[in-house]
Design a protein around this nucleic acid. Structure first.
Lengths: 141, 141
DNA sequence: ATATATAGTTTTATCAAACTAACTATTATA
DNA sequence: TATAATAGTTAGTTTGATAAAACTATATAT
């Protein structure tokens, strides 16, 4: 069979898989948060000190959208902002201990899933998969 | 490095990739439709004659949700319903020529992306990727 | 000193997507 | 035949995500 067609199907299957991977988060202890919220939390975890404007540029969403979302997380005690000394217009965002705990749970859920994937593949396949994903992840689709 | 951690990153990268793959559809000629609509259209294309109830069960969404979404597609001239002769409560859903054309465009967009992916990998990697995805797609995460 | 730009907030509004509940029409069953 | 169940619709609502526009506060440049 044509590799092109097979690959289209693979992408379909991956879409389903990724969707499962993500929505798993909405079952356990994290079910009170939306995927969007968990995504913002992850972003702040990965880029501690990021600002509302930077998030806005990264995600190509309006500042107002981000501002509202982040302030909601602040009200929930998940995120704090620290005003910059050098430029008082800036606020550095970071996770509170509650936020860090959410990230911990988040990572744990994913880790459990990853284990299932690893168990279903042999080590060579895992290696190969990681390598291939690295190659296609940098593509400018 | 720990394979588990690497795989977590791979899944993150895949999430981004799949998201790009999907939202590409919202750029060109298909931009007037939502991803959800394109998804329903794809579902009806793949399962011609499917009913509202069947979609509802498959997607685990309420019948009313599906009914509204499908009727919207009918109003847009993308889908038609044909009442069953044997059980008049049933309506078989299928795409109109407009709907089929949308699917054609949809597939074309994906095909172009797939080409980029294929070009970035060697044939052995493509084969390997397809095989691995098949294995993990059937997992019950 | 004044004008301009930037960071972030607030208000108001819109939209998609989902839900519940009550409904009609049809079919199956006790 | 009367009652249950099923397919689909309709009305009304809720939630989450987004945007535009007007705003405050601060910083930069002329």
């Amino acid at each position: 069979m044509n590799q092109e067609l097979e690959l289209v199907e693979s992408m379909d299957k991956l879409s389903v898989l990724v969707h499962k991977f993500q929505t798993e988060l909405l079952n356990g202890e994290l079910k009170e948060y939306t995927l969007r919220q968990l995504y913002y939390i992850e972003l702040i975890d990965k880029h501690e000190g990021i600002s509302v404007s930077e998030i806005s540029k990264t995600l190509e969403l309006k500042k107002s959208t981000i501002s509202i979302a982040i302030n909601q997380l602040i009200e929930l005690g998940i995120v704090t902002k620290i005003q910059s000394n050098t430029d008082k217009r800036f606020y550095f965002l970071k996770l509170t201990s509650k936020g860090k705990n959410i990230m911990k749970l988040h990572k744990q859920v994913h880790k459990n899933t990853i284990k299932k994937i690893i168990n279903s593949l042999n080590p060579k396949e895992v290696e190969s998969f990681i390598k291939i994903v690295d190659k296609i992840a940098v593509l400018d689709l």
